[in-house]
Simulated scan of single mutants.
Amino acid sequence: MALHRWKWKDVRRRLTDHNGRWQRPSADGIELFDLQAVAVTRYRYRGNTIPNPWARLNHA
């Protein structure tokens, strides 16, 4: 059995449209998860209650 190695040209040809824009891979109507739709929020649980070591410095 021969392995079919995909070259970058083959990947690009398969995953771009005729204008050269990238498309998300899909199979049978199921697409990959869209990571751009997820908002990034940091420290949702503790927020600003995390102690900051630089705020305690007293430069008198």
Rank of each mutant, 00 (worst) to 15 (best):
R56D: 09
Y43I: 03
D34G: 06
H4D: 09
W22G: 02
I50T: 11
N52Y: 11
S26V: 00
A2P: 13
R21V: 12
A2I: 14
S26C: 07
W54V: 05
Y45H: 13
T16C: 14
V11N: 01
M1T: 12
W6F: 14
W8F: 13
D34M: 07
R42W: 12
V38W: 06
N52C: 09
L3S: 03
A55P: 00
R21Y: 07
D28M: 10
T16E: 05
Q36T: 13
Y43A: 15
P53D: 01
A37K: 14
H18I: 10
G20W: 08
E31F: 11
I30Y: 11
I30C: 03
N48E: 14
K7P: 00
K7H: 09
I30F: 09
T49V: 08
H59C: 06
R12P: 00
V40Y: 09
N19P: 00
H59D: 06
N19F: 01
W22A: 09
G29F: 02
L3N: 03
I30M: 10
H4P: 00
D10P: 01
D10I: 06
A60H: 09
R24N: 04
P53Q: 02
L15H: 06
R56G: 06
D34S: 13
I50K: 11
L32T: 15
A55T: 06
D10N: 14
D28P: 00
T41L: 06
L35A: 13
P53M: 05
F33G: 02
V11K: 01
M1L: 11
R24Y: 05
H18L: 04
L32H: 02
D17M: 09
H4K: 11
R42P: 01
A39I: 08
W54E: 11
K7Y: 04
F33S: 08
L15K: 00
R5W: 03
D34Q: 13
D28V: 04
E31Q: 03
R56Q: 10
R21H: 12
R5Y: 07
R24T: 12
L35C: 04
I30H: 10
L32W: 06
R24F: 10
P53E: 01
K7R: 12
V11W: 10
P25F: 15
V38G: 00
L3P: 00
R14L: 12
H18N: 07
N52L: 05
A37P: 00
W54Q: 03
